[in-house]
Design a protein around this nucleic acid. Structure first.
Length: 606
RNA sequence: GCACCCGUAGCUCAGGGGAUAGAGCAGGGGAUUUCUAAUCCCUUGGUCGGAGGUUCGAAUCCUCCCGGGUGCGCCA
């Protein structure tokens, strides 16, 4: 199985889904999530009022952060958009809007620039007020959605009897992060690990188990032994068609409930789970449910029979298929749900799984976090589900493949791909070396704890920071880098702040929350950045793109590091000191919360 | 053959109608009596694969072409 793929079928027009993604929830939170305290949304309201007064369509009132700080803090392109429809000069339209715009309590006088941009520079006082609002808010300006949805997120889904390798990291980490964000925004989330515990790999495993199982090796390193069996049988099959047939027969026997094969299967599943649990524990990933493929076995036959009876499925060339007349994309691509030999397919399991989920949780949405190559499969499954009357929003959260140095997908069978356990161990080991060097006084146990947080953070961040649809070339160097745009960079910003607070406490300086007063440019830049926190999370969830959160946090840490260089905190005095301390404190909170939503922890020192 | 994705700096990637296209790494030069240098500052580096089109405005949308990848009835 290629690593970019899951053990499960795929398919669905993920591009269409991606494009439509901002429409599946309430339109009310699509464009501008309700952030009543936010300066940005307040400006937007003011612009909307001005547009109304100027006789222009209010929905054009979109305020964004300025493209360049030279132009100010925020901007709106409404005049240029309106000018197009009105067939007027954009700058004249902008002037007309300005004449109706009342923002003197928030900004310096707005200016018209370029082709018709209206730029806003926020007053230091207004910015200070806004920051103090966020600082007082437990949720740091992040509102929950008014109408929470029930979302089932199906991710990770490794195959039993095979090791988890780097190809599994994307689904696992992406799914985990999306789950955390969705929950944080108030949705009801059910995470399910639809593990591949009933695939055709068992024919090979059982054959190998019966013919050349090394019991000592199984004792020592169970997964490795199972993999060895799998690979050896795989190789044998290539050369001997008779063995291939026997292997297939072992699978059929298992599916028919053969006692011996069932027992081997149970042991293999249990051994695999043990290893998966170890990795999930290390990664801090948990699931509400682990209903693997085998859970749905008994449902497959009746499901197919019912679909046949309902004339949704038909027999074609001996196989049971669902056709999609009237759908140009799927006209020639039926969904097969029973082979001519009576065996079931992944689509069958997916449909049975969906029925179960519908009945048990009545979800508003089901998200399948699997590789992009599976899009057609999901398209077929979703189309089948619709024929069955399912109206739930089904979405394939596709992601690109991890490529080898040769820019081709890493192949499981070639054996060259990197096992996840080894990658994580290496990351932690390298982090430990750095921690020991930088923080030799820390007790060993403390160093190990810090190394774990940093090493795992680096690996997770390296994956999450990438646009999820892009293929990327796997590189140890990138995965294990602790410099530049990496998790340790973000963690370091947090650690610096914690260090300042420790020192303040030691010196008897009050760290009680105090009002923030913005004056220095570095303070402005930092403050404006964490005011965006409330908006960014909604955008991330709407597009299912944690890389935007990574980018946001990187910029926050970047601005903090500059502030740190430019604005001494403990060296300053009085209200300036307490203000800067408070500013740093909020930054730390946003960093910690933001990273936790990526599934990344923060150490107190590093 | 058909469908989908991708092509942006030496490398790895952001940006997906808006102002002079950004970052990390790599390369060059600086900063530490000062809250952690896993940091900061400066700097080198780009006909955004190509050609048309739409638009006041295109890396971004449309069409075609080139190049790479992936998928496409009894695998998962």
């Amino acid at each position: 199985m290629p690593p970019g793929k899951r053990c499960r079928p795929a398919g669905c027009d993920f591009v269409a889904a991606f494009r439509a993604s901002s429409h599946w929830l309430d339109s009310s939170f699509v464009l501008h999530p309700f952030v009543p305290m936010s300066l940005q949304s307040e400006l937007q309201h003011r612009v909307a009022s001005a547009l109304r007064a100027a006789g222009i369509e209010e929905s054009l009132a979109v305020v964004t952060t300025a493209a360049d700080t030279r132009f100010g803090d925020y901007q709106t392109n409404a005049a240029m958009v309106a000018a197009k429809a009105l067939k007027k000069n954009p700058r004249e339209v902008a002037a007309s809007i300005l004449s109706h715009l009342k923002v003197e309590d928030l900004c310096k006088a707005p200016t018209v620039a370029g082709a018709g941009f209206i730029n806003f520079t926020v007053l230091d006082t207004a910015l200070s007020d806004a920051v103090n609002e966020v600082a007082r808010d437990e949720r740091l300006g992040v509102e929950t959605v008014p109408k929470p949805k029930t979302i089932i997120i199906d991710f990770s889904s490794p195959n039993v009897a095979k090791p988890m390798h780097v190809g599994h990291i994307r689904s696992t980490i992406l799914g985990d992060s999306l789950s955390r964000i969705a929950r944080h925004l108030g949705h009801r989330v059910i995470t399910d690990n639809h593990i591949g515990d009933w695939g055709t790999q068992f024919g090979k495993v059982i054959y190998g188990w019966k013919h050349f199982l090394d019991k000592d090796a199984l004792e020592q390193a169970p997964i490795a032994e199972l993999v060895r069996l799998y690979r050896e049988v795989n190789a044998l099959e290539e050369t001997d068609p008779a063995i291939k047939e026997t292997v297939r027969h072992e699978l059929v026997k298992l599916q028919q409930g053969d006692v011996e094969n069932l027992e081997i299967w149970k042991q293999a599943v249990a051994l695999s789970w043990k290893e998966f649990e170890r990795l999930y524990g290390l990664l801090g990933v948990s699931f509400d449910e682990r209903l693997g493929e085998s859970f749905y076995n008994d449902a497959l036959g009746p499901l197919v029979e019912r679909l046949l009876a309902e004339k949704i499925a038909v027999v074609s060339e001996g196989a049971v298929c669902i056709f999609f007349p009237g759908s140009p994309e799927l006209e020639e691509k039926p969904c097969l749900i029973r082979k001519s030999d009576g065996g079931f397919l992944y689509a069958t399991t997916d449909l049975a799984t969906l029925e179960y989920r519908e009945a048990r949780w009545k979800p508003d949405a089901v998200w399948y976090v699997t590789g992009a190559p599976q899009q057609l499969h999901f398209e077929q499954v979703f189309a089948s589900a619709r024929r069955m009357g399912v109206t739930t929003d089904l979405r394939h959260i596709a992601f690109g493949s991890i490529l080898g140095e040769d820019r081709k997908m890493m192949k499981t069978r070639s054996g060259e791909n990197v096992e996840l356990g080894g990658l994580l161990a290496e990351a932690i080991e390298r982090a430990l070396a750095v921690v020991a060097e930088k923080n030799p006084d820390l007790p060993k146990a403390g160093q190990e704890e810090v190394a774990r947080i940093i090493g795992l953070g680096a690996v997770k961040y390296a994956d999450l920071m990438q646009h999820r649809l892009t293929d990327y070339v796997f590189s140890w160097e990138k995965m294990l880098s602790f410099q530049g745009n990496t998790a340790p960079y973000l963690q370091n910003a947090y650690v610096r702040i914690r260090s300042i607070f420790r020192k303040a406490t030691a010196e008897g300086i009050s760290t009680e929350s105090a009002p923030v007063t913005i004056s220095d440019p570095a303070e402005r830049a930092l403050a404006l950045q964490f005011l965006q926190f409330g908006e960014i999370l909604h955008t991330v969830l709407e597009d299912q793109r944690p890389n935007l959160l990574c980018l946001y946090l990187y910029e926050l840490a970047d601005r903090f590091h500059r502030f740190y260089e430019a604005c001494p905190i403990l060296k300053s005095e009085g209200s300036v000191r307490s203000s800067r301390l408070a500013l740093a404190g909020v930054t730390a909170e946003v960093l910690k919360t933001g990273l936790s939503l990526l599934g990344i922890g923060v150490p107190e020192r590093m």
